[in-house]
């Protein structure tokens, strides 16, 4: 029961303190909202790009176009060689007929029919080398183009360049986003530290009385710490409500642009909301803790 009374006392005092110093408290809360909205935006973009990256990773494969008139023996030897390379998951031979069938199917998928105008089209035979990971694309390509196999392989194509480009963009966004977040985070900390500092000085008289009548340090400190946490909590609630409002328009973008499945995006919303609450409460607690540690000692 004493602990319950302590918690009840601290929460009530924190709530009263928040509204007694309403202007500063609301300003600090607004900065928390700003930071969390920025964090949510960064999280959405980076998660979407990571999801897109995974999609591309799964598609990164090395396709080796074979030279015409390659004997079956040479072709089988090349397939065996490709399978023996490190980083290779699967090797599939695609005959000219199979390649043609795929082309027809691709047209059919788009609701079109492949028209050749009577001309006979002959596609190249190829082998498709599925990789364990995109990082193996370079070594596998080099191995298939080495002088011993140059007479069998005409050309190599991969999606490595697209992959590398996307990784580069993600790294830039991540770096810029993290720098912006840190700057906004520091601003939020500064605001909360100042809000609590003003609260501590405004209530110096009360603190003095509390000390003299034998209030423990916990009773003196925790209402101020909870006041900072309250700024973070209210900021997180506002940010999550804003996120819920804009979620409907955002969801199709996540699904289509970033190849993010709908089921994952619902889980994603829950994860993001939890993250916003954790960061909001954490920043509020850290800011007020810093302020109480540095300012309360000066008052008492």
């Amino acid at each position: 029961m004493p602990f319950v009374r302590f918690v009840g006392f601290s929460v009530i005092r924190a709530w009263q303190g928040f509204w007694r110093n309403a202007m500063m408290s609301l300003a600090a809360t607004a900065t928390v909202v700003l930071m969390l909205v920025l964090l949510a935006g960064l999280f959405v973009v980076l998660s979407g790009m990571d999801s897109g990256l995974k999609f591309i990773e799964s598609k990164v494969a090395v396709t080796a176009r074979l030279r015409d008139n390659l004997s079956t023996t040479d072709r089988d030897a090349l397939l065996a060689y490709a399978r023996s390379l490190p980083g290779v998951r699967q090797v599939t031979y695609v005959s000219p007929e199979m390649a043609m069938e795929r082309l027809r199917q691709a047209y059919a998928d788009r609701g079109q029919k492949l028209e050749t105008g009577g001309a006979k089209i002959s596609l190249y035979a190829s082998i498709e080398v599925a990789l364990i990971g995109p990082s193996h694309a370079g070594s596998v390509s080099d191995a298939l183009l080495d002088p011993a196999h140059r007479s069998q392989v005409a050309q190599i194509t991969t999606k490595q360049s697209e992959y590398d480009k996307l990784v580069g963009i993600i790294n830039v966004i991540r770096t810029v986003g993290i720098i912006a977040l840190v700057l906004v985070g520091l601003t939020v900390l500064f605001m909360i530290v100042n809000t609590i500092r003003i609260a501590v000085y405004a209530r110096a008289g009360e603190i003095e009385i509390m000390r003299l009548v034998g209030a423990s340090d916990s009773f003196i400190r925790w209402p101020f710490i909870l006041e900072g946490i309250l700024c973070g909590l209210i900021g997180a609630i506002v940010a999550v409500v804003m996120l819920a409002i804009v979620w409907e328009p955002i969801q199709p973008i996540l699904v289509s642009v970033f190849q993010m499945p709908t089921a994952v995006s619902r889980q994603f919303l829950a994860t993001l909301s939890a993250l916003l609450f954790a960061v909001g409460l954490g920043v509020g607690a850290i800011g007020s803790w810093i302020s109480v540690r540095s300012n309360l000692a000066a008052v008492i």
């Binding site: 009374r5 006392f9 009360e206 009385i209 509390m210 009548v213 034998g214 009773f219």
Partner: peptide, 8 residues
């Protein structure tokens, strides 16, 4: 207040 702040 003096009682409340000492957990009474």
């Amino acid at each position: 207040f003096a009682l409340e702040v000492t957990g009474a």
